[in-house]
Amino acid sequence: MEPSVHFIHHLRKGAAALLPLLPLTALVCLAGGVPAYGAAAPLRFGEMYGTVTSRGIALSEKLKSLENQPVVMEGFMAPPLKPTLDFFVLTRVPMSICPFCSSDADWPYDIVVVYLKSPVTALPFDRPIRVEGRLELGTKTDEATGFVSLVRIYATKLGEAR
């Protein structure tokens, strides 16, 4: 997060205060032309990687086989950098720290960046959510924030997990 530390600190208060935890009764549909519900392949955090060593991570065959395919994942939404951003970070467990908020905290390696058609403000951070969309792999730097991601989902559906 180093390049955007000052940026992040400015955003800390606003980011969270503006996020009402509205009860969700159904999946939020974010865009038209999405694959039919049920077509997406389920993907779990534990299935993303092959071998993980201190020399780096190898993506699993399953993950690679799903590149550019619709997938559905469950995880936790980390408090976003700011409510108007078009992405958030999906984590395996709820975050006890907010790397966007604290310059000394960092992300675990097994995260998925979820890109959105439009910012979402209606999801909780402490209950599991479900994300459906197209899987993209490979290192990518977000132009607006400098945030580097490896695994991304371009979300078409988003909601609380059951």
């Binding site: 800390r12 935890l21 408090p79 709820p94 006890s96 720290i97 908020c101």
Partner: peptide
């Protein structure tokens, strides 16, 4: 296991 998790700008008990 974390004792609390961040929900917005407030930590809530896990």
């Amino acid at each position: 296991v974390s004792p609390a998790i961040m929900s917005g700008d407030a930590a809530v008990g896990n």
